[in-house]
Nucleic acid binder design. Structure first.
Ligand SMILES: [Mn+2]
Ligand SMILES: [Mn+2]
Ligand SMILES: [Zn+2]
Ligand SMILES: [Zn+2]
Lengths: 138, 138
DNA sequence: AGTCAACTTGCAACCGAGTTGCATGATAAA
DNA sequence: TTTATCATGCAACTCGGTTGCAAGTTGACT
C-alpha cells in the first residue's frame, strides 16, 4: 500500500500484492508477529492463502527484509528489518507472550568460551514484563 | 542403573525404571538430547513408549532434575541439571547442530532496557563451532 | 504484439514434534 | 487388604509448518 513498502520490495524482486500486504503489516506492527497473527490481520482486507503467506515470509527473510525469531512455543515470529542490522536482542513478555525486538540494545557480554569452541554469533533473549503488562494495579 | 541416579530421583518421588533410565541417559550425555535421540539410545536396552518418555521428561523438568532448551529447529533438547543452578548460557554448533550447556559460563551483560520493560531473566545462546567440528583439516 | 521461461499463487495432501483420553498396571498409604 | 494415587502404553489427535502440482502472472526477448 504505502509507496515505501512497495519500493522496498521492488529493490529485491517482484512487488506482488501479497508481498506488499505482508511487509506492510509487519512494518506497522509494534511487536514480532506469528504466522497466525498475520493471517488474522491480513484477512481483514481480502483473502490470502496460508501457504502463500508462509512462502512470502520465507522470501522476505531470504531477502533480508524481515527476520524470524524462534521461541519457546515452537512458533516463528516475524519482524520487518529496519535499515540497520540489529544485534538480535529480544524481549519476551512472560505474561502476554509478545516478543519485541530491542533494536538499539547492543548488549556487551564478557564471555570466555571453553577451549575448542569457536565463537560465531550471540543471541540474547530477555524475559520479563512488557510495558503494557507492567501497568500498576489500579 | 547407577545408585546416584536412583537416589536423585527418590529425593523427588517414585524412582520408576523409566525415570531412572532416562535420567541416567541424560547424565551420561555430553550434550543436550532431543526426544528422538533419547528414544534411540533407550531403545538399545529395552523398550519405552514415546509418550511415557515425553511424560518422564516433563516430570524431570518439573522436579528440577533436568531442564529443556528450545532451539531453532522447533525441537526441545533436554539436559540433566547438575547441583548448581546454571546461568542458562548455551552453545549451538552451526555445523552438527548439537547444543551444549555452558554451565560455568556466567556471562555478564551490560544492558539498559527501554523504559517500561521489567527485567526477569536473560538467556544467552552462542552460535559457532563445537570442539568436535573445529578439527583442523588434515 | 507474441512467445516462452521463470516466477508466484492456491489447493490438497502431507509431515513430525508434541499432546490428550482412556484403560490398565504398579505403588503406597490407610 | 483395601483403596486412592500415580505411572505406563496405546491410539487418536493437534497444530505449525512443508511439499507436490497445476494454474495464473510477470517480464524479457524476439
Ligand atoms: Mn529482532
Ligand atoms: Mn543448560
Ligand atoms: Zn506483555
Ligand atoms: Zn559440532
Amino acid at each position: 500500500m504505502s509507496p515505501t513498502t512497495e519500493a522496498l520490495i521492488l529493490s529485491r524482486g517482484r512487488a506482488t500484492p501479497a508481498r506488499v500486504r505482508v511487509l506492510d503489516c509487519l512494518l506497522r506492527a509494534t511487536s514480532a508477529l506469528t504466522h497466525g497473527e498475520l493471517e488474522e490481520r491480513l484477512a481483514r482486507d481480502g483473502t490470502l492463502d496460508r501457504v502463500t503467506l508462509y512462502r512470502v515470509l520465507d522470501w522476505l527473510v531470504e531477502q533480508g527484509l524481515a527476520h524470524k525469531i524462534s521461541g519457546e512455543d515452537r512458533v516463528w515470529r516475524f519482524n520487518a528489518v529496519g535499515r540497520e542490522e540489529h544485534g538480535h536482542a529480544h524481549f519476551r513478555c512472560t505474561r502476554c507472550g509478545q516478543v519485541f525486538c530491542l533494536d538499539d540494545l547492543r548488549p556487551s557480554f564478557a564471555l570466555a568460551l571453553p577451549p575448542g569452541y569457536v565463537f560465531g554469533s550471540a543471541e540474547l533473549t530477555i524475559r520479563g514484563l512488557c510495558p503494557a503488562c507492567n501497568t500498576p494495579r489500579v
